[in-house]
Each structure stands twice: as structure tokens, then as C-alpha cells.
Design a protein around this nucleic acid. Sequence first.
DNA 1: GTTGTGACTACCA
DNA 2: ATGGTAGCCACAA
Length: 103
Amino acid sequence: MSVNHINEVIWNVVSLIPHGHVATYGQVASLSGYSGYSRHVGSVLKQLPDDSRLPWHRVINAQGKISFPESSLSYERQRKRLEDEGVIFNGSKISLSVYQWAG
DNA sequence: GTTGTGACTACCA
DNA sequence: ATGGTAGCCACAA
């Protein structure tokens, strides 16, 4: 499979994450049909333009946290977007109830 | 071909 | 809970 295809399915899966919900990099990779490509998911999101309409902020790591240092601006940006959607944070971790959205 | 790197994970002490 | 470590896979030097 070409890399183009991988990116396309990843974009598609990310776009399907419902408002107010989140998915892990691993989940996105698996649902895209590319289990084990979690790191690549992060790579794809990193390359998105700032004006992208993709809900990249709904993708978090397996620890239920945002994959940015809490001191960073990126962290603040992602966290604010999630909280604006009603996602609850327990410290730096996200409430478990929002994990189930597919399957 | 090798090495280092990353918005990752699972496992183990 | 937390830090270290070893897999993981694509990509750029």
C-alpha cells in the first residue's frame, strides 16, 4: 500500500471522531487498517496546516493524555479545544468516559 | 546500509 | 503511580 493511501485513511478516520470524544493514536491506526502505525498517525497530524479543518485535537495518547509537554503552547491549544467541546480533564488526564465512540 | 528521531505503546521493575 | 526500556514504522541525514 502506498503512503498516500495510508495518509488518506488516517485523515478519514480522524474526521470521523465525534465532537466531544477522543481516540488514541493506536486506535486511529487500527481503525485505518494499519495497526502498529501509531507513530505515523502523529507524524500525519504534525504535518497538517494550521487552518486544517480536521479534528486533530481529538487524538490523544494511550495514557489518556495530550502528547505535548504541558508547558507548550500546543498543549494549551489542544486542551482548550477539547474543553470547549465538553471533554473533562482530571488533572492532565482525560475522563475515561469519552474513549468509546467506535466499536 | 546505518543511525537518529518522533504528536506512540506495551511491559516490567 | 512512575520511570526505564525495548519494540514499533516511516523518513531524513
